[in-house]
Amino acid sequence: MRYFTQAFDYDHSWSKVVIGMWHKYPNPHCTHVMSVDVVDRSVDPQTGIIRTERILGCKQRAPTWIVKLFGGSEDAFVREISFVDPTTQTMTISSVNLSLAQFAVCNESIRYSPTPDGRTRFTQSAEIESRMALWHSVADRLESWLATRFEQNAQSGKLGFTDVLRQLWEEHGSEQHQHA
């Protein structure tokens, strides 16, 4: 089992960050994300909480040893569930891999909430665990590769989203930003 966590603040209000979330892809830092589809969404008429289920398609070139051992292709899919709660000003996002899920599971949790000074705190954690009683050294290498990829993607996600928010809210002005 490998763990990953990071936290930092975006320089925009919670509302702007949460609106920006739906504009995050495509962005040049995250070219591995090829497709994003909403497969379910509801607006709770009592609480105003918005629940969204999305499927993200990614291309990640896997090392030859992974392809040989586990098969699979360059296309990998992730299921993401998010809740936007305007009352508590919280957005939570949890994701899990659909591809290669019989071998290893990467569970990611993200939370966006306001800071006292009007910015937005981002916290991200992930647990990566190979599922089967794999030959120990193979399981270890698989976890290690997945954890490295996760850290690289987390870093590029931060850079990419920072740019997206800047373009959305600073370059066009907040009143007349263009829908990408």
Partner: peptide, 20 residues
Amino acid sequence: LEPAVAVPSTDRAAYARAKA
């Protein structure tokens, strides 16, 4: 989103229902 954050708790359900 922004009105949903600002709406007083007494009006929240009515706002949520209208917006849904």
